[in-house]
Amino acid sequence: MDLLPVLAIIAIALAFDYTNGFHDAANAIATSVSTRALTPRAALIMAAVANLAGALLGTEVAKTVGEGIVAAPSGGEGLLLVFCALFGAIVWNLITWYFGLPSSSSHALIGGLVGAALSSDAVVKWAGVVDKVVIPMVVSPIVGFGLGYLLMLGLLWAFRRAHPARVSRGFRYAQTVSAAAMALGHGLQDAQKTMGVIVLALVVGGYHTGFDVPLWVILAVALALAAGTYSGGWRIMRTLGRRIIHLDPPRGFAAETAAAAVLYTTAYVFKVPISTTHTITASVMGVGATKRLSAVRWGVATNIVTAWVLTIPAAALVAAALESVLHALMF
């Protein structure tokens, strides 16, 4: 098959990776910026470097995305499927970015794959979708909320007799570490989804066999994600850092630490693609609930959850509509 369409798909995938970076940059650094542990620019630089490093740390999630969600046909129809999946994900990313809603780029991509596959009569591996996407999508925020809540309770008890100003100052320094861990986890999880899609495009285009990720794909995706992260996502940063709950440094540290723990566990132990966005947002809610339940702005939280629920079907609809139109024109 001609190389040019494959290169075009790779370029679009890297563009998606870039939008993932600026869309999800807030996930790693919003809490640190809102507590003034880091300046916005320093936080973005740190997050970009950590995202770059995290993207180099594993490929198991990429294999899950590449071969575990859909069975794409070979040739032009398979490349069209991948293109429409990416288009649907990018459109949803831009919509939610515009409205400042921290939705999941990962689930937008998977929704795009499923929608394009259904439109093209390709095989959707529903068992894989349920086991590797739906169940982790539900469980990871619950675990993030619970872990954030419990960790914050532990910190409150451990420092119950300490001077509040001294504790706050100490956790500002600690947040530098927890934010870096969160950004590393974001790179580890989110970069691999784009790697998986690029490998899928290479396979259906006939330029790669198997779903092992070539080194050049890893490096290209890592750089695109880091560049997107550095460009920032200020709208979503405000939502995560201030509108859900006003965070102090101990709560910011607890939220980031809890979320990072979930990201590493799912990537290395279960090898499933989870949403960084869902995880950190739920962790923020969990640590906020230790203050009092009314401290969490549940109206904002409801809007976020609504965006979560809509992400997969919305991206799927966009991808399916585009695939049906282009398929009729091209084949």
Rank of each mutant, 00 (worst) to 15 (best):
L109R: 01
I95E: 05
G68K: 13
T64H: 14
P40L: 00
G88M: 07
F211Q: 09
A42K: 10
V65K: 15
S32A: 15
V199L: 08
G88H: 08
N27T: 11
R172M: 15
I198E: 03
P249V: 15
G112Q: 09
T311W: 13
P214S: 01
A321W: 09
P273E: 07
T276M: 06
A222N: 01
M152A: 06
K193G: 06
L200G: 02
A28Y: 12
V133S: 04
W92C: 02
I135S: 05
E323Q: 08
W97H: 05
D2F: 03
M152R: 04
M195V: 02
A165K: 07
V287C: 06
V204A: 02
L44T: 07
P214Q: 01
F270S: 12
F253W: 08
R251E: 09
A328K: 15
A260Y: 03
S231L: 05
I218G: 10
A47P: 15
E67N: 15
E60V: 03
T229K: 01
M237A: 14
W308F: 07
H107K: 11
F83K: 08
R161P: 00
D17N: 13
W157D: 10
I10A: 13
F211H: 13
W234G: 15
Y98Q: 13
I236F: 09
A28V: 08
A320Q: 14
S283N: 06
V82A: 12
I280D: 05
L118S: 11
G146C: 04
S140L: 04
L57W: 09
I142R: 02
T290P: 04
Q189D: 02
I198P: 01
G144Q: 00
I218A: 14
S324C: 03
A321I: 12
V65Y: 14
M1D: 02
R160N: 08
F270V: 02
A117C: 08
V287H: 03
A267G: 09
V114A: 04
V262N: 10
F159Q: 04
M1K: 06
G241R: 10
F253A: 05
M46S: 11
L38A: 15
R292F: 03
L326V: 15
V287N: 14
V139R: 00
T35V: 02
P249Q: 13
L247K: 03
A180V: 04
G78N: 06
E60Q: 14
M152Q: 10
G170A: 14
T290E: 05
